[in-house]
Each structure stands twice: as C-alpha cells, then as structure tokens.
C-alpha cells in the first residue's frame, strides 16, 4: 500500500485535450525499486499519462503524490492548474525525464547538460556537480565525449547522455518517454543496456515503451493502456504471456 515513503502515487487521472478525452481515470503506484512499463497503441494515452506525472501536462482531475507530498491544484473557470508552481518545480526536480527526442540542450556541451540542473536548480557547487557528472558520463560510456556538443553525437550517445543528465539530479523516479523510439535499430541496444543496469541497481522507473523484450525482462509491472484506461496490468510474465484482454492479445499478436 502507498504510504509517505512511496516515491510516486497517481490516482484516478483524467485528461482531455479540447473535446477529446485522453485519460479516463488511470492510476499507478511506483514503490522503491519498481520498474513499471506502460504499453499500448499510439493514442492510448501512455505518453500523456507519463507527462502528467511531472506536470508537463496538467491533469483535469486526479491525485498526484510524490514521496508523500500531494500536488495542490486550483480550479479556474474551465481549467485546472497547479496551486503553486514553486511546488511543481520542486517536484519536477525530483522526477527526471528522458525524452523520445533526447532534448539535450543544444548550446551546452554534454557535461554542461549534465550539471545544468544540479547547479542551477538544486544549487550544488559547480566543482562537485562536475565531478559527479563526469562519473555519470563514465557510467553511460561517454566520459571521452564530455566536451562534445549534442549535435556532434549520435542519437544513441545523446540518449545515454540524457540518461546521465537525469541521473545527475538523483531522482526519486525516472520517467522514460519512449526512449528508444527515435533511434536507429543498431543504437537501441546500448540505451536499453544502460536502462537495464539502472533497473538492476534498484532505480525506480516508469517507462513508456514499445520494446516488449525490455518490458518482459526488466519490469516489475506492466500496464497496458487502451483508450485512456488501464485495460490490463500485472507482472510481465502474466500480462505479456497470458493476456486476458482480447485487445492486449491483438496488440501483442504481430510479435509472435
């Protein structure tokens, strides 16, 4: 059960864009060390769900609790917005996101990207942030690329750099938004290998992905979304091998 130590709790989230409802009451509980994968067809709401978790999208209804801290919302005439952007910024700095398109800051070197949030958001001394940043780049195999700019790196290198940037804020939960979807097939393996390592060392992760092998081997829980609802969820061995829902069976079918 969720308590104040649970890194991330999401309850009954709803979200519409204009008249199109994308999320119709989805929930999730990420405990320490959980790796939760969100799967589903495009348009199922899985990316929106993830983006609601760090409030890149503001949910229309539902609860968001990060390490026991409830995100406060205020209701305007038509829209809902966070009551305190200060709180949102604090919470975001504890949930690091890795994007499909990497989104490394183009005008900063790789090490500059890695130390940016620690130095300017968290107030870590620059020298200390740099040392830690270099160690993280070492981890993802990019120590020799620290002074390169994103445009000088391959997609796979950029994504591993983006993972180092995420690790640099020592996040409670790492959010991955289709981290390998924009990569050439031969570069996917390196990124997944880094993610497997993170899972093995007990990082709490929520991963939107189409990589079914990753979901099967690494995750502690799989959530299958369909039309903004949790259609089926459970341990990967159950959900991916013996799906109850006909829709999930169909979703998985082309892979067999």
């Amino acid at each position: 059960m969720a308590d104040s130590e649970t890194p991330l709790v999401v309850r009954d989230l709803h979200k519409s864009f204009k008249d199109v409802s994308v999320l119709n009451g989805v929930s999730l509980e990420a405990h320490e060390g959980d790796v939760i994968t969100l799967i589903g067809a495009s348009g199922s709401g899985k990316s929106t769900f993830l983006r609601c978790m760090n409030l890149l999208e503001v949910p229309d209804a539902g609860e968001l609790i990060v390490h026991g801290e409830h995100v406060a919302f205020k209701q305007n005439k038509k829209t809902r917005e966070p009551a305190s952007w200060k709180q949102v910024e604090r919470i975001r700095s504890r949930l690091a996101m890795v994007f499909q398109g990497f989104n490394l800051w183009a005008h900063m070197s790789l090490i500059g990207n890695v130390i940016e949030a620690p130095v300017h958001v968290l107030g870590v001394p620059k020298k200390q942030a740099r040392e830690r940043g270099m160690a993280l780049l070492e981890r993802v195999g990019l120590a020799d690329r620290a002074d390169y700019f994103p445009a000088q790196l391959s997609g796979g290198q950029q994504q591993r750099g983006a993972i180092a940037r995420a690790l640099a804020v020592d996040p409670e939960v790492m959010l991955f938004d289709e981290p390998t979807s924009a990569l050439d097939p031969e570069l996917v393996g390196d990124v997944l290998a880094v993610m497997r390592e993170l899972a093995d060392e007990g990082r709490t992760m929520v991963v939107v992905t189409h990589e079914m092998d990753f979901a099967r081997d690494v995750s502690s829980q799989v959530i299958y979304l369909h039309e903004g609802r949790v259609e089926e969820t459970g341990a990967p061995a159950e959900v991916l091998s013996r799906p109850d829902s006909p829709r999930l069976r169909q979703f998985l079918a082309p892979r067999f």
Binding site: R92, N103, A106, H107, A117, V121, R165
Partner: peptide, 30 residues
C-alpha cells in the same frame, strides 16, 4: 527554437526566469 528544449528545462524544475535565461534566450539569440 525547438519546443523540446524548453520542455526539458521545465521537466528539470527550472522556473520561468531561469529557463529563459539559461535555455530560451541563448538558443533564440542565434
């Protein structure tokens, strides 16, 4: 400026002013 750049700034907890100063302004000036 690519929207993803500012999105990353927000996702890492930057306030509006910090994101402007560190990300949007230098990228936009080019």
């Amino acid at each position: 400026v690519d929207a993803g750049q500012m999105e990353a700034a927000r996702a890492y907890g930057m306030s509006g002013w910090l994101a402007f100063r560190r990300i949007r302004f230098p990228l936009m000036m080019r």
